[in-house]
C-alpha cells in the first residue's frame, strides 16, 4: 500500500470517528501538537478560532457536539500526495436546539507526521454557513440594517 492510500484511509478513519461522536478516537489520529485552522468569521462564530494541541482541538470538537446531535459527511473528492491529503466534503450537522440541518461544503487539507495528523486547514463557504447557523438572510446587514 502506498503512503497516499494509507493516509487517505487514516483521514477517513478520523472523519468516521468524529462523525460517530467519538472525539477521543478522532484525537488519537492526531499529533499532540496538532494545529487546526479554519477560515471563518470568528467575530460571529467565536469557537472557530485557531486551535493548537489536542486539548484545544478537543474543546472545539466537544463544543460542536454540544450543539449538534448528528454529523454526517460525504467525501466525493480525496487527493493525496506524500504526507498531505485534501478532501472535498459535503457535511451535514443536525442542531440540537431545533433539529434543523446545517448543510455546507468544506475543503479540508491534512498534513501528516509519523502517521498522525499534524495540521488541519479548512475552507468553508462561510457566508452560507453563517446564514444557516443564524437561520436568516444576512443581506439586510449588508445594506446597513443591523441584525440583532
Amino acid at each position: 500500500m502506498t503512503v497516499e492510500s494509507l493516509n487517505k484511509q487514516r483521514v477517513l478513519h478520523l472523519l468516521d470517528a468524529f462523525a460517530g461522536g467519538d472525539v477521543e478516537a478522532a484525537l488519537a489520529c492526531c499529533t499532540e501538537d496538532v494545529d487546526f485552522l479554519t477560515h471563518a468569521p470568528i467575530d460571529v462564530l467565536p469557537h472557530m478560532v485557531p486551535r493548537h494541541g489536542k486539548a484545544e482541538l478537543r474543546e472545539f470538537w466537544q463544543t460542536l457536539w454540544s450543539r449538534y446531535s448528528q454529523v454526517r459527511y460525504k467525501a466525493p473528492r480525496i487527493v493525496a500526495e506524500g504526507e498531505e491529503v485534501a478532501t472535498y466534503m459535503h457535511t451535514y450537522f443536525r442542531k440540537r436546539s431545533n433539529d434543523r440541518i446545517v448543510q455546507f461544503d468544506m475543503a479540508v487539507f491534512y498534513t501528516f507526521r509519523g502517521g498522525l495528523v499534524a495540521e488541519i486547514r479548512e475552507i468553508i463557504d462561510s457566508y452560507d454557513l453563517v446564514q444557516q447557523v443564524l437561520e436568516r438572510e444576512i443581506g439586510p446587514s449588508i445594506i446597513g440594517v443591523r441584525v440583532d
Binding site: 468569521p41 467575530d43 469557537h47 473528492r77 463557504d125 457566508y127 447557523v133 443564524l134 449588508i142
Partner: peptide, 28 residues
C-alpha cells in the same frame, strides 16, 4: 472543478467594511 472560498471574508472585502452580526456563543 470544485472551488471553495471563505465567502464571508470575500463579501466584507468587497463591501470595504465589516458585516455586523450577533456573536453565536451557544449555537453554531
Amino acid at each position: 472543478m470544485r472551488v471553495l472560498i471563505d465567502t464571508f471574508d470575500l463579501v466584507e472585502q468587497a463591501l470595504g467594511r465589516a458585516i455586523h452580526l450577533p456573536k453565536m456563543t451557544s449555537v453554531g
